[in-house]
Each structure stands twice: as structure tokens, then as C-alpha cells.
Design a protein around this nucleic acid. Structure first.
Lengths: 227, 227
DNA sequence: TGGATCCGTTAGGAATGCGTCAAGATCGGT
DNA sequence: ACCGATCTTGACGCATTCCTAACGGATCCA
């Protein structure tokens, strides 16, 4: 599922530029041009991250932060043209998570966004539990629970494969990537291993191991976790 | 209780300047001049925050971040003279929480430290007393009471292991993390210790030590407290 | 139709990791 | 200096997991 970002800036051009960039990087982008709009959208859609410009027409930027912090812990990254040190400190102490001074480099913004989302995501297993009709996978706890409530025991290798597939669930993961990440780059061509372990995973997880529904083979390319 | 900060920098002058500043602001400061020292102190003292200079003599800064992130979620703020964008991005993607380029203003550093600690502080507190059918564990009082009401005596090491497992109850705790946090990063591979102490804990807590119900082994990966 | 390629399945020996025990070393208090 | 408690270390048997090879089935193409 794509990370949802709310971008708040009164300049429509900047807004558009950032939106295009982020969308190209796989983010789901919402925008707002005023402080009140930002608060409204936040309450309605609960974004995973807020990019906030301080120079808004209706409300002071720090006021927006303070309002948000009354009920939300969403990560907030401030983007501002003001280089004054007190602005930074006020914003951070009001509840902002990070502060970038314009002009900033887009790669740095993206890296700081990843860091902010990573932090907020891990402590309260938000997206770490993937549930299907037949079992649920807890990536943080490294646990698989079958529909009957029993815990399914996986070996380290089985878990490594399942984790890779589930983290990119829906997407095709190439055999080369699986082999490289789990056995090392030297085993790039040992597709044997994958066949054996995928069979074991299916025996443990699929209702009908002979006709897999979740662990799908894409012949000649790789495997895919379908939920 | 004062926030404990570990400051890592190879330049003794900078180290001293930062230490004095932070101490004046009420922080409890520890210092390290090398990457290995930083890892050792982190494992021994569990600081609440790490300030890390990237230019260390023995290890690359990002290597220190990566090692720490194997077992710790302590906030890391990188302080670096390098203005190169790729350094920033690498550090952030490896697990750093923030990145300041030298020279920076001390008020800004302090504000970012407050922000980092604020984020990390709240979400991790859960119940301090965990009860099972056969015993109950009081994490705050560091006490274990058996079903008969008698207190179970645990040695310091036994308690350290049990506490780690119970704080993340249900989740798998890797042997690396256990060894790093209790014996230090250098003992990462001494899985012997875990076997011995888990056996002792089971003898003291499990109704059937030979068939553990609470202290579960996940072969090749780690241990898990199941309640 | 025949061949080639890729995949699923099975099984058994090799390698690894775990539980257990016991003895020596170390530490802390009297 | 002594003693008990705690920690370290090594060795052994056992269970699990991994690797590997072989075989049969499915699909595609000539």
C-alpha cells in the first residue's frame, strides 16, 4: 500500500512540482494550500506523513503543527524559506519532526521522508500484519497464525523467502533477487532451492498446496505473493 | 531522570565543547572517540540518544549506524562536516534519524535532540505487569511471582533476558539482539550463553521445563515469550 | 510428434543448531 | 581468606534444518 503524503504549500507551482516528484516515487499525494485545509484533510484522511510550508496565508505554520499535535502523531516535515534559527526551533519544539530550508535537494527530502515514515511505522505495528482468508503474517513479530489460531512454524530460510515476498506483496520478485538476498549473489542461478522451499511454504500455508493461491509462480521470472 | 546522550566524535575538542554544552542543559553525557567504543558504550549503557560524527578513525559512520540498528532503535542524529548529498542519504537510509551539517547552531541541535527524544519516548510503554497461568512478572518491581505466591529468584543475567523477551512478548527476539544488549556487540555469536540461560529460566518458570510453553525457541532465529 | 525448458515433488545424508550437564573461574560479601 | 552465588566454557547426544540429486509432469516451440 502506498504511503499517503499531505503536502501543504500556498504556492501552486511548488505544490505541483512536489506532487509530480512524489507521485513518480510511488507516494499517494494529497495537497492543501491553506492551514485550515491542511487540518481538514488530515482529519479526514489520516495521511502517513505531512510536508508543511510555514508561510501560509491564513494560519501561522506553527499553529498548524500545534493543532495537529492535539490529536495526531503523524510525522511532520517542515519546508520553509525562512533561514532564521528561531523559526526552526519553534517549529521543532511545537511538534515538527524535521525541518528543511528551501531550496533543498529532492533526494535529501526523499531520504528524510523515508526516515520519518520508518520511525513512525515500526513502534506500533501498523502495516506489519498482513492478513488473508487463511492465515495472517506478522512481520514484526515474525509470526504466522493459521485460520484455526495455531501458530505455523517456519524455518529461517522459509521465513526469509516469505518475508521478501510479503514485503512486496502483489509485486513480482525475481528469482535472482530472492537467491541473491537470501543465499548470496553467488547462488544466483540455483533456482532449485526456490522450488524446494516454495513447495514447503505452500505445504504449510496454502489450503490446497497443489493449486497455490497465495504463493504464485510466474514461470521463467519469479514468484509473487497474492493476498 | 536525565536523558542520557552518547556523543561520538574523534576530535577531543569538539567532544569537550558539546559535552559541556549538553551537561549545562541537563543531559547526562557519555562520550566515545571511535566507532567500536561507541558500539561498546551503547550496548553497556543504552543511551536515550546518540550524536554521531561520520568521520571516525576505525569504522565508517554508516557502518556504526548499521551495527546499532541490528539490535537498537535508539534515535541517532548524525553530525558531519561532509556536505555531500549522498552521505546524507546513505546515513538516513541506513537508519539515522536526523543529519546536521557542521557547523551547526547549538540551539538547533538542542531542538532536534528534543524532537528526536520526544518521538522515541512515548510509544514504547506497555503494561508493567504480565500475568500468565503459571506466574506473573512485574517489570517495574523486577519481581517474578509463581502461582503458589512464592517469589522466584532470578540472577541478574536471567532477569535481563526475561525482561527483553517479555517487553516484546509475542515477538521473536533475535539471538543477536539478546547477545548485543546483554553481553555487548562483541558476543554476538556466543549462542552458547543463551542456551544455558534459557535452560535455567525454563527450570525456574516452566511447568514442564523439557517442553517449554512460554519461552519458545525458534531454531536459527531467536527466542520468543509466548503468553 | 519430439525435444527442450522449467517447475513441483520427494527423500536421504550432511551440516548445523539446540538442550543438557558438569566442572572450573569469577565475583561479592562476611 | 573463606564461602556461596553467579557466570563462563567445553563436550556430548539429539533434533531440526539444509543441501543435493533425481524423477515426473506441464508448457512451449519447432
Amino acid at each position: 500500500m502506498a504511503t499517503r503524503v499531505l503536502v501543504v504549500d500556498d504556492d501552486a507551482h511548488i505544490l505541483r512540482a512536489i506532487r509530480i516528484h512524489l507521485a513518480a516515487c510511488g507516494y499517494a499525494v494529497r495537497t492543501a494550500q491553506t492551514g485550515r485545509a491542511a487540518l481538514r484533510v488530515s482529519a479526514a484522511e489520516h495521511p502517513d506523513l505531512v510536508l508543511l510550508d510555514l508561510g501560509l496565508p491564513d494560519l501561522d505554520g506553527t499553529a498548524v503543527i500545534a493543532e495537529l499535535r492535539n490529536w495526531s502523531t503523524v510525522p511532520i516535515i517542515v519546508l520553509s524559506a525562512r533561514t532564521d534559527g528561531t523559526d526552526k526551533i519553534n517549529a521543532l519544539d511545537t511538534g515538527a519532526d524535521d525541518y528543511l530550508t528551501k531550496p533543498f535537494s529532492m533526494p535529501e527530502l526523499l531520504a528524510r521522508m523515508r526516515a520519518a515514515v520508518r520511525r513512525s511505522g515500526s513502534p506500533t505495528d501498523r502495516d506489519t500484519v498482513v492478513a488473508t482468508r487463511d492465515f495472517s503474517i506478522d512481520l514484526a513479530a515474525k509470526k504466522v497464525i493459521s485460520r484455526t489460531g495455531a501458530q505455523v512454524h517456519l524455518t529461517p530460510t522459509e521465513w526469509a523467502i516469505l518475508e521478501l515476498l510479503v514485503r512486496d506483496r502483489g509485486a513480482l520478485v525475481s528469482q535472482r533477487r530472492l537467491l541473491s538476498e537470501i543465499w548470496g549473489p553467488a547462488y544466483r542461478t540455483e533456482t532449485n532451492y526456490l522450488r524446494v522451499y516454495l513447495a514447503q511454504l505452500r505445504r504449510k500455508l496454502e489450503p490446497e498446496p497443489a493449486r497455490p493461491r497465495y504463493l504464485i509462480t510466474e514461470p521463467g521470472m519469479g514468484y509473487r505473493f497474492q493476498d
